[in-house]
Nucleic acid binder design. Structure first.
Length: 309
DNA sequence: AAGACGAAAGTGGTTGA
DNA sequence: TCAACAACTTTCGTCTT
């Protein structure tokens, strides 16, 4: 997994280790040691481009607000002024300005209007789901490409935006569950899944299977678990992966089971229902995964000991 | 009474002929 | 295109705490 980690390392308020890192990619400040999450949804201050070599650098430098894909015109719109701006212009100039404004109105083709609507939806849902900016941008780009290819036809705009956002999240390793995306858009998750797969195939977007670890921290913070418990579940998952018992299984189920187990071991028991709810799986799935984990990882004795105390 | 457990039947998606 | 298949869900009855 590609990880771009920040430079500013500070002391963690939870575990005390000097391992607080700023993960620009996820937009999170968290502790590498215990997984403590300091701040979600932060602003990405990094440059929007990189200078690969000095030749190209000049081309990419520019002034102004960052290019954004979440505005329908990529934030480049130049508005032709209204009344107030006419003062002091010659009649000839005035006529010209009128012409420009007329032209501007005509630019608003149905496609542009659709994009404008879609980007509004994207911004709304992104803030609801705490999506970091860079991921939102990518989602915008995906939607734009999909629209250009005419993939929106026959589908609701919302479902395509939702699919694009879901895809962008997974690409950036900041997964949101289908349930969460579904809630944000009020579109059935079945449909989102469908359009998501469709646009991925059409746009040739390759997405690797999600690792359960990518869900652990978010679920853990929703469950108010201690950093110790959280890192313990990460360990469990790593072992499970080594044992090869995770392939083909749903990552959310594994994350949920690992969290459930480590919560028991660390004496801050959560019910299966509680864990199941935040992970978006059922108790049955947790039970199945957790049975397998106990079996293969020789955790049975530990569990018995934990129960006695 | 609540939580944990597990059997059985159903759903939606993938795969391979 | 269809059937087999695995993962997951829903539902429900039975234990355990």
């Amino acid at each position: 997994m590609e990880v771009i980690s920040g430079e500013k390392i500070k002391e963690c308020p939870e575990c005390g280790a000097e391992s607080i890192k700023w993960d620009k990619k996820k937009g999170e400040i968290s502790c590498e040691n215990c997984g403590f999450l300091m701040e979600e949804n932060m602003i990405d201050f990094s440059q929007e481009w990189r200078e690969f070599d000095s030749d190209k650098a000049e081309d990419k430098r520019r002034v102004g607000s960052p290019l954004t894909h979440t505005k329908y015109d990529k934030g480049l719109s130049t508005k032709v002024g209204k009344r107030g701006d006419f003062r002091g212009l010659s009649p000839g100039k005035r006529k010209e300005v009128h012409k420009m404004r007329k032209w501007q109105r005509r630019i608003s083709t149905p496609i542009e209007r659709n994009l404008k609507l879609a980007m509004g939806e994207l911004r709304r849902a992104s803030s609801f789901l705490n999506i970091p900016n860079n991921v939102k941008e990518e989602a915008g780009m995906i939607y734009r490409k999909a629209a250009e290819k005419g993939l929106v036809r026959g589908r609701s705009m919302e479902s395509v935006v939702a699919g694009a956002l879901y895809a962008a999240c997974r690409r950036a390793h900041v997964p949101r569950t289908l349930d969460e995306v579904s809630e944000a858009f009020e579109v059935g998750k079945k449909e989102i899944g469908k359009t998501y797969r469709f646009i991925c195939r059409q746009l040739d977007i390759r997405i690797l299977p999600t690792s359960p670890i990518e869900y652990v921290h978010r679920f853990a913070s929703e469950l108010d678990l201690t950093p110790e418990t959280t890192s313990r579940s990460v360990e469990i998952i790593k072992e499970a992966v080594d044992e090869g018992i995770t392939s083909g299984k749903g990552p959310m189920g594994i994350a949920a089971a690992a969290l459930y187990i480590s919560a028991l071991l660390e004496e801050e028991k959560k019910t299966q229902r509680e864990v199941a709810d935040v992970a978006g799986v059922t108790e049955v799935t947790i039970r199945n995964r957790y049975k397998e984990l106990l079996e293969k990882l020789n955790l049975k004795e530990e569990m018995k000991e934990a129960k006695k105390e």
